[in-house]
């Protein structure tokens, strides 16, 4: 099939930059470990309150400057809904839902994940900038969806 010379040049550079781009994404994901949140742990959605660590939701210190933040999501709230995190802390956030699908987004950070019944959602984030961050549900979950929120304070 005939292709115009200019089209060949156009496609060569276009497809070339596409593969460079995909390689960058691949190196970021597999060599540097920047994968999107993809936790494979399952949980019984009707027994979230009895299943550790969600039986005692909140911030737990797990090591030197390392923390776990365990949050329970349900229509239309997060438990706990106020958290203070020391500046510079490396926090693994685990979230589970008791009912429908919720979102878990911390505006102004890269923390953004789906929370689905039956699964634990998990992401690790280091908080270097002090300030107040709003957590909100960004997946429609019902009449009170836009009222589902929590607050994180990163303190010195």
């Amino acid at each position: 099939m005939h292709m115009h010379k200019y089209e060949k040049i156009w496609l060569f550079f276009g497809i070339g930059s596409l593969f460079v781009f995909l390689a960058v994404l691949g190196v970021g994901a597999f060599a540097q470990g920047n994968q999107p949140p993809s936790c494979l742990t399952t949980i019984d959605p009707e027994k979230v309150d009895q299943t550790p660590p969600f039986d005692k939701p909140g911030l737990v210190k797990t090591g030197d400057n390392e923390y776990q933040l365990n949050i329970v999501a349900s229509a239309f709230s997060y438990t706990p809904n106020q958290v203070e995190i020391p500046k510079g802390a490396k926090v693994t956030i685990n979230v589970a839902t008791k009912d429908v699908i919720h979102g878990f987004e911390m505006a102004g950070t890269n923390v953004n994940m789906m929370v689905e019944p039956g699964y634990v959602s998990s992401f690790t984030q280091t908080f270097d900038k002090p300030g107040e961050y709003v957590i909100l549900c960004n997946e429609y979950c019902g009449a009170g969806h836009h009222l589902m929120t929590a607050k994180v304070k990163v303190v010195e």
Partner: peptide, 19 residues
């Protein structure tokens, strides 16, 4: 880009400065 969610009615998220 600032974090405003889709598929949500008007909300100030408890008067959060970001919202």
């Amino acid at each position: 880009l600032l974090g405003a969610p889709r598929r949500s009615a008007f909300s100030t998220y408890g008067n959060a400065p970001q919202a």
